[in-house]
């Protein structure tokens, strides 16, 4: 257990490509669904309990040592949007690159060799957490926090939202983030014995639909 490594992995400055993605916030801003701190909070709460929960459980399962290929297939089944699947694998490759250089070792090298086209980002996140000496709770926290941290940062840039307000949103979501991480770890432990179908499959249809529209649109600031 190496708690400082958690800070490093959860830091938004960790160079794994996240800065170019808004987690659906740009599409929501464009559609008028995020206009201020209150609507950002509602968006983030929804994302945390759907995409965030699924990502956290995948990350926790990977950190527990579940088979990455099976987890990747489970992530595909829980990601209807081809654009989001593509984004998830791209971010997975970028995170694996950063992880391999930061925490060198055979396990991550093997992942890159066996899955040259990449794995969904949460699966890589769990594997990188494991390589960094972290446990499933840490991996779940990273994924859950990232699911709301990315959109909040992006919204500061998109709406010129007061950065203190955006940070306040994340603070108010902290108890929910705790609950989501806990639930994700319980599901990940179940998946070790019962298979990946035990992982949550909470879905946010509007995130999936707007991701497709966003991917087809020119003049965007964020890749997704």
């Amino acid at each position: 257990m190496n708690r400082a490594a958690l800070l490093l992995l959860a830091d938004g400055r960790f160079p794994a490509g996240g800065h170019a993605h808004s987690g659906g916030a740009e599409a929501a801003v464009r559609a008028g669904r995020i206009t201020d701190a209150a609507s950002l909070e509602a968006f983030c709460r929804g994302r945390l309990h759907t995409a965030g929960l699924v990502a956290a459980s995948l990350a926790a399962a990977a950190a527990l040592g579940a088979e990455p290929g099976e987890l990747d297939a489970a992530a595909d089944a829980r990601t209807p949007s081809p654009a989001l699947r593509d984004t998830a694998r791209r971010l997975g490759r970028q995170l694996l690159r950063a992880g391999r250089t930061t925490w060198p070792g055979g396990q991550l090298d093997a992942l890159a060799t066996v899955f040259p086209r990449g794995l969904h980002q949460p699966v890589v996140l769990g594997a990188v957490a494991r390589a960094a000496g972290l446990g499933p709770e840490d991996a779940a926290y990273c994924a859950a926090y990232e699911s709301v941290g990315g959109p909040a940062t992006a919204t500061v840039r998109l709406l010129s939202l007061d950065p203190f307000d955006a940070t306040g949103v994340l603070a108010r979501l902290a108890p929910d983030t705790d609950r989501v991480a806990g639930r994700a770890v319980r599901a990940a432990r179940e998946a070790l014995t019962d298979g990946v179908d035990a992982l949550p499959a909470a879905s946010a249809p509007l995130l999936e639909i707007s991701a497709e529209a966003h991917a087809a649109r020119g003049g965007r600031l964020f890749a997704s």
């Binding site: 800065h19 993605h21 970028q94 992006a154 600031l221």
Partner: peptide
């Protein structure tokens, strides 16, 4: 084309992972 999330200098200096890819 690499997309830079409103921060072009980040993509060439602080987080080069998308450009390396």
């Amino acid at each position: 084309a690499v997309e830079t999330g409103a921060c072009p200098h980040t993509a060439i200096r602080d987080d080069i992972s998308a450009n390396l890819e």
